[in-house]
């Protein structure tokens, strides 16, 4: 897998380049203007396609003399995946549920994810979560006048 990383990068960007070109051409036709909204995207897509091909070629050659190295530690892909999902949920729920609740849940989860098992003290992390979120909320809403989404707590805070 790792030895093909440049090949994969090249292939993905090739697809992006082709997609960009495919979406730009109709815009150009619709606008009926050579140097219109589609002009620069078309140029960019051609450059991307050319460079992707070069990258794929280089990546293919590099893969031939690839040597596996022993990693010095185990990658924590599971944690990263959980985090990615949490990030998106946080952004999506921020408005309906509100800043305070989503932030408390997110921050606590992230603390737990980041802290090594043997060092985890849930009580301490929980307390830290509450204090930090309220402090951030306090600073931004009161001092900087930013109105954060209240969500379901609307009318209570």
């Amino acid at each position: 897998m790792k030895q093909y990383s440049d090949l994969i990068t090249g292939a993905v960007s090739l697809l992006i380049g082709i997609a960009l070109l495919a979406m730009s051409i109709p815009i150009g036709i619709q606008e009926n203007n050579l140097i219109g909204a589609a002009f620069l995207p078309e140029i960019v897509s051609v450059i991307i396609i050319a460079l992707s091909l070069k990258l794929m070629y280089d990546g293919f050659r590099a893969a031939q003399d690839y040597e596996e190295t022993v990693p010095e530690f185990v990658k924590n892909y599971k944690g990263t995946a959980v985090m990615i999902v949490a990030c998106i949920l946080y952004a999506e729920l921020l408005k309906p549920v509100g800043f305070l609740i989503t932030s408390i849940v997110f921050l606590f989860l992230t603390f737990c994810l980041m802290t090594k098992k043997e060092e985890t003290n849930y009580l301490k992390l929980g307390a830290l979560t509450i204090v930090s979120v309220f402090l951030i909320y306090f600073i931004f809403t009161k001092f900087f006048g930013i109105r954060l989404p209240a969500g379901i707590l609307k009318g209570i805070i």
Binding site: A91, F99, S103, T110, M114, S132, I136, I146
Partner: peptide, 23 residues
Amino acid sequence: KNILLPIITVFCVVGAYANNNRV
């Protein structure tokens, strides 16, 4: 790091929101 980075993330959420007041 395990304390600092998560807290910064929450700061960033506020910052990104406050930039144009859009979720």
